[in-house]
C-alpha cells in the first residue's frame, strides 16, 4: 500500500549540548511505515544545527519567539501554512507549549493538527505543585518546601537533612550541602526564575526515566523506560539504556490512566536502593532521547502523528530491552550562503 503523504512541521532543531527533540522526532517520522513525510523545520535561531543537516528538512522557516506574543507566533505559522499546507505540528520547546496549547482550536480550524496536553494537565504538574500532584495521583514524591524568602531555611533544616536539591520553577537545579550553598542557589535561581524557589528532599538512588505517549483517554500508547548512563554537566543524558522494569511501566500506565494525559511526556524518577520510586519531575513533551524508543521498537513520533490526525492507535507494549543510545558531536561543514539565506530571508 502506498504511504500517505503528509507535511509535518517541527520545532526544536537545536541539537546542541542542551538538545531540543526536533531532529530525533523527524528521524522517527521519516521511518514511519504509513507516512511519506515532507518536513518543515521551524527555527528560532540561525545556527540551529538542524538547519544545516543534509536531507533533514524540505523547507526551513524562522519563527518569532513566543515571548513576543502568541498571536505573532501563530500568525507566522498560519502564513507558512498558506504556502506549505501543514498537516501536523509537533512543538518541542517548553517555552512555546503554552502558546500552542492555547491556540490548539485556532490551528485545527486551519487543519493544522497538534496533539498536546490540556492547560490543566500542563499546569498541575508544575514543579512547585509536585507535592499536591503526588497526593492526588498516589505517587511518591520527595518532600519539598516552596521558599519565598531566605528566612525559611530553618524550616528546611527542621524538615530535611542535607544535601537538598534547590530548584527553579521552570529550569535549573542545584544540590546544596549546607546553609551557605542553599543561600547561593536560592539567590541564583530566584534572580533568574522568580519565586517560589523549590527546596526538595534529596532522594538517594539511581535516576531513571520513562518516555511515554498518552492518547488523552487514559491509554498508554507507548512507554519505554531508560537509565541514563552518562550525564553531562548540564544534566543531559549522553548515553542511555532501555530497562526491563515492570514497576516503572505500571507507574507510567497508572499516571496516564488517572490524568488522561494527552501527548508525549517524560517521567523523571529516582529509584532508591530499597526499590522505591520517587517522581521528581514530569516533562510535558517528547524528550530529546526519543530516538532510543524508536530504535527499541516504539516509534513515538509516528504514533503521535497518527493520534493528531485522529487515527485509532493501538498501544505498543513491546520494546527491545538493553538497547542503548550513545550521543556524539559532529562537525558539519556548511557554506555561508545557507546562513545568509536564513538570516536575510527568514526561510530556506
Amino acid at each position: 500500500m502506498a504511504k500517505q503523504k503528509i507535511t509535518l512541521a517541527v520545532t526544536g532543531l537545536n541539537n546542541t549540548d542542551n538538545p531540543g527533540p526536533g531532529v530525533p522526532v523527524i528521524r522517527g517520522a521519516k521511518e514511519s511505515e504509513d507516512f511519506d513525510v515532507r518536513v518543515i523545520g521551524l527555527v528560532y535561531e540561525n545556527l540551529e544545527p538542524g538547519i544545516y543537516m543534509e536531507d533533514l528538512c524540505d523547507r526551513i522557516f524562522q519563527i518569532p519567539y513566543p515571548s513576543s506574543g502568541s498571536d505573532e507566533l501563530i500568525e507566522r505559522i498560519e502564513q507558512i501554512h498558506q504556502q506549505e499546507k501543514i498537516d501536523v505540528l509537533i512543538p518541542n520547546f517548553d517555552a512555546e507549549l503554552f502558546s500552542f496549547m492555547k491556540n490548539e482550536q485556532r490551528l485545527l480550524d486551519k487543519e493544522i493538527h497538534t496533539f498536546l496536553p490540556s492547560l490543566k494537565q500542563f499546569q498541575e504538574r508544575d514543579k512547585d505543585k509536585l507535592a499536591e500532584y503526588g497526593k492526588k495521583y498516589g505517587v511518591k514524591v520527595p518532600g519539598s518546601i516552596n521558599l519565598g524568602t531566605i528566612n525559611q531555611i530553618s524550616d528546611l533544616e527542621d524538615k530535611f537533612d542535607y544535601p537538598v536539591m534547590i530548584k527553579g520553577q521552570f529550569y535549573d537545579a542545584y544540590e546544596a550541602g549546607n546553609e551557605e550553598q542553599v543561600k547561593q542557589a536560592f539567590y541564583k535561581i530566584s534572580a533568574k526564575w522568580g519565586f517560589p524557589v523549590i527546596a526538595q528532599e534529596f532522594v538517594k538512588g539511581t535516576e531513571v526515566n520513562v518516555i511515554a505517549l498518552g492518547d488523552g483517554k487514559g491509554n498508554t500508547i507507548a512507554a519505554v523506560p531508560m537509565r541514563k548512563q552518562y550525564i553531562t554537566d548540564k544534566g543531559k543524558a549522553w548515553g542511555g539504556i532501555t530497562l526491563a522494569d515492570e514497576k516503572m511501566m505500571e507507574l507510567t500506565r497508572m499516571l496516564i490512566q488517572k490524568t488522561k494525559w494527552k501527548g508525549g511526556m517524560e517521567l523523571e524518577l529516582i529509584k532508591t536502593n530499597s526499590g522505591e520510586y520517587y517522581l521528581i519531575e514530569i516533562n510535558p513533551r517528547i524528550p530529546a532521547w526519543v530516538y532510543l524508543a524508536v530504535g527499541a521498537g516504539q516509534n513515538i513520533p509516528d504514533a503521535l502523528i497518527k493520534l493528531a490526525l485522529g487515527w485509532d492507535v493501538k498501544p505498543m507494549t513491546k520494546y527491545k530491552i538493553g538497547k542503548m543510545f550513545v550521543r556524539y558531536s559532529f562537525d558539519m561543514i556548511v557554506d555561508l550562503e545557507k546562513f545568509a539565506a536564513i538570516s536575510m530571508n527568514k526561510e530556506i
Binding site: L336, F339, A340, S343, M344, N345
Partner: peptide, 17 residues
C-alpha cells in the same frame, strides 16, 4: 556585499544586513 543586502566581513567573521 551581496546584492540582497547581506554583508560579510571576512576579517572579523561578522555578518550584517
Amino acid at each position: 556585499i551581496s546584492d540582497n543586502g547581506f554583508v560579510f566581513n571576512s576579517k572579523t567573521g561578522d555578518s550584517f544586513n
